[in-house]
């Protein structure tokens, strides 16, 4: 596994980076049907690498397991179906590391403007524009009012 950790900064080597990117793409692949990129998209993966910060060290220590689980050709050479299967095996064997990676993937994927737009969500921060929420139907309270008091007297 040591070859997945860069000797200079203890972060990911090129090989480790490629495996992590492929893993992200197996967790959330691109979809033509929905017109969205995968989590291995350049911009999303760059965001992921930046956001991972010091947790990259922990991730790097576990990525080699994917190589060990894969057939002779290694994780990168596997088909998407096989990558998904290997990712699920990885999650079963190392839930803490997998949860960290899944969290990073989802955080970065679901703030990408292309992804948000595909969901009908405005691709902007909530503040300062905010959102509109309907008041709703306050007549729903009528049966609650009709039932009368339910509090418990104390004297």
């Amino acid at each position: 596994m040591s070859d997945l950790i860069s000797s200079s900064d203890q972060l990911l080597s090129e090989g480790g980076r490629a495996i992590l990117r492929a893993l992200a793409g197996a967790i959330i692949p691109a979809s033509e049907a929905h017109g969205v990129p995968g989590a291995d998209d350049e911009a999303i993966f760059t965001d992921l690498m930046t956001s991972a910060g010091p947790t990259l060290q922990f991730i790097a220590e576990h990525l080699g397991i994917l190589e060990e689980l894969a057939d002779d050709g290694g994780f990168l050479a596997a088909s998407l179906d096989d990558k998904v299967r290997l990712a699920e095996q990885f999650r079963s064997a190392h839930p803490e590391a997998a949860a960290l990676i899944v969290s990073l993937v989802c955080q970065c994927y679901y703030r990408d403007p292309r992804v948000l737009e595909s969901l009908g969500t405005p691709p902007r921060p909530p503040f300062p524009e905010g959102y509109e929420i309907d008041q709703g139907d306050w007549s729903l309270l009528d049966p609650v009012r009709a039932r009368g008091p339910i509090f418990r007297p104390v004297s």
Partner: peptide, 25 residues
């Protein structure tokens, strides 16, 4: 969106792989 995805993945309602998108939606 993020918490929805994490809820779905961690509860087993959203799979890894191509099935992610339909399940997420």
């Amino acid at each position: 969106a993020v918490m929805t995805a994490l809820t779905g993945v961690h509860s087993g309602r959203i799979p890894f792989g191509p099935g992610h998108h339909e399940a997420y939606r």
